[in-house]
Simulated scan of single mutants.
Amino acid sequence: MTQFSDRLWSEAVQDVIQAGERMDQRGWVPATAGNLSRRLEDGRIAITRSGGHKGFLTVPDVIEIDPAGRPIDPMQKSSAETLLHTQLYAADPLIGAVLHGHSVAATVLSMALAGSSLTLAGYELLKVFEGQSTHDTVIDVPVFDNDQDIARLATVVAPRLGAMPAGYIIRGHGVYVWGRDMKMALARLEGLEFLLACELERRKL
């Protein structure tokens, strides 16, 4: 790699490591849950390797994959849900980072919902999501049934791509959120998790 590409890779890896620490601090990646990725300016994708605690990531815990999700080093293994990351990158060239967490609120709410979406309305924080400029709006967050067959799950998610400003939830599992860079992806993740926590608290009242 050139000095320029070395710098790009180092920056991407640090973005992933720092995002993992932040998500861990908030209890969104317990045990070995969750996965994080960042697309570089030159098109490479840095993603967390399979297993491992996302709050204690080190440089070797972030590996390079190609756009199809294959590790550049065949001896390495990326997250089991890599396809859900590469699906998003392929769908939108402006996406620069994808985050997946397993919060209590996302898990409990999605299991309690009978429908295929969670409606969020009237919250000031809805403005953090793409295309929103007022609290006086409604966003439906898709809820997809969990499936250990990730390729099959990706085909269920595919028809909704491009129409999920707040990301999506996998039932009993967790959320997927993305942005043009890691900073935006984290802001949207924190926004969605705050709103899910609010919805969970309202159901307790």
Rank of each mutant, 00 (worst) to 15 (best):
M1H: 13
S5P: 00
D6Y: 08
R7K: 11
W9G: 05
S10C: 14
E11N: 12
V13K: 14
Q18D: 15
M23C: 12
Q25K: 09
R26D: 06
G27N: 12
P30Q: 06
A31W: 12
A33W: 08
G34Y: 01
L36H: 06
S37Y: 08
S37M: 09
R39N: 02
D42G: 00
I47Q: 07
H53V: 12
G55Q: 03
V59G: 01
D61M: 02
V62G: 05
E64P: 00
I65A: 09
G69T: 04
R70A: 12
P71K: 14
D73K: 08
P74R: 11
Q76F: 09
K77P: 03
L83F: 06
L84G: 02
L88Y: 05
L88F: 08
Y89F: 13
A91T: 11
P93M: 05
V98C: 00
V98H: 00
H100C: 06
H102P: 03
V104R: 11
A105H: 07
A105C: 11
A105Y: 07
A106W: 02
A114K: 14
A114E: 15
S116T: 12
S117G: 07
L118D: 02
T119G: 02
G122Y: 12
E124D: 15
L125Y: 08
L125V: 07
K127C: 14
K127W: 05
F129D: 02
E130T: 14
S133G: 13
T134E: 11
D136T: 13
D136Y: 13
D136G: 10
I139V: 15
D140P: 03
V143R: 00
V143Y: 01
V143A: 03
V143Q: 01
N146S: 08
Q148V: 05
Q148I: 04
D149P: 06
I150H: 07
A151C: 07
L153D: 00
T155E: 15
V156M: 03
V157L: 11
A158N: 10
L161K: 04
A163W: 12
Y168K: 01
I170P: 00
H173L: 09
G174N: 04
V175F: 04
V175P: 14
Y176S: 07
W178E: 02
D181Q: 12
M184E: 15
A187K: 10
A187S: 10
E199M: 11
E201R: 15
K204G: 09
